[in-house]
């Protein structure tokens, strides 16, 4: 196929799009919406991942000691804690101090604990973990190990719920893959039908082209370019709309569960490029399937 023919193919593809503009506009709109659903999901996932990652950077943990623990027992626990990679003892909270802080936290309601015959609060070590060489802290493993140490009553870490959240994230990712797969099939189907309609609208011309000696590829290529152009346009449009929506949303700082203030980030460039290439490939594949089924003149 000579290079000389490519301008003809491109002209033909653009002429097809213009003469079937309503069919193409509907196809394009549906493709953009499908890609936008997928992109929005991805944007959400990327941000959730970023937020979870941020929380995981600095893990805090409280190691509660049994009542009546000896000084030696406490020293032993302290030395075990110090031996943990990335761990730092922020402070030791004695039973008395715990009660004082609790009383302060209760404020005007502090009178409620005046009637207690003994101090029910345990002494504890407050630990902070930092990532070592970029490796995430295995909070659950550390908790299990520390709870085995003699004299340790209980271990809590502030991001314990993150583990449960990780499970949720896995579920969201899985749902994302399923939705993405279904949407890809939908997009493929849309392109196939759009191209099929334009092929039917040019059936007479195709027949004549074949009768004057056009090869199958000569007839097929403009339709495939048509599908590719549809993929390019819908991919680009979906990303532009997503970016505009992101700009609007990101002007507001995101508050989540009143725990922290987060920045809203856009999908990474490589993801955006992948979505664009996916859209182009789906356009090409859809038109390829559509033309493949047609040519038996």
């Amino acid at each position: 196929m000579g290079l000389r023919l490519w301008p003809y193919f491109l002209r033909q593809a653009l002429a097809n799009i213009i003469s079937n503009r309503i069919v193409h506009a509907i196809g394009l709109g549906t493709m953009v919406v499908s890609l936008l659903i997928f992109c929005t999901f991805l944007l959400l996932l990327v941000n959730l991942n970023a937020w979870v990652g941020e929380w995981g950077h600095s893990l805090t943990m409280s190691v509660y000691l049994q009542d009546g623990i000896s000084e030696v027992g406490r020293d032993n626990i302290e030395s075990v804690v110090r031996s943990l990679s990335g761990a730092q003892i922020r402070r030791f909270i004695s039973k008395e101090r715990a009660l004082t802080e609790f009383r302060r936290a209760l404020g005007s309601q502090a009178g409620l604990i005046d009637g207690l015959s003994h101090n029910p609060l345990p002494a504890s070590f407050e630990l902070v973990f930092n990532e070592v060489e970029g490796k995430k802290v295995d909070a659950r493993g550390i908790k299990q190990d520390l709870e085995k140490v003699e004299g340790v009553e209980e271990v809590h870490y502030s991001e314990e719920w993150l583990d449960r959240f990780e499970g949720l994230m896995k579920m969201i990712r899985l749902v994302g893959f399923i939705i993405g797969g279904l949407l890809c099939m939908g997009v493929l189907f849309i392109v196939m039908n759009t191209i099929k309609l334009t092929i039917y609208s040019r059936k007479e011309e195709i027949e004549i082209l074949k009768l004057v000696g056009a090869t199958n590829w000569f007839v097929k290529i403009p339709f495939m370019l048509e599908g590719m152009i549809q993929g390019i346009m819908s991919g680009a449009l979906a990303l532009v709309i997503l970016f505009l929506a992101y700009l609007i949303i990101s002007t507001e700082r995101m508050h989540f569960l009143d725990l922290a203030v987060f920045d809203f980030i856009f999908i990474p460039n490589e993801y955006a490029l992948s979505i664009f290439l996916l859209s182009v490939s789906l356009g090409l594949a859809g038109s390829f399937i559509a033309v493949g089924r047609f040519f038996k003149v």
């Binding site: 196929m1 000579g2 000389r4 023919l5 082209l209 004057v212 000696g213 000569f218």
Partner: peptide, 8 residues
């Protein structure tokens, strides 16, 4: 012209 266009 169509008859010649197909020949490239």
């Amino acid at each position: 012209a169509l008859a010649l266009e197909v020949t490239g």
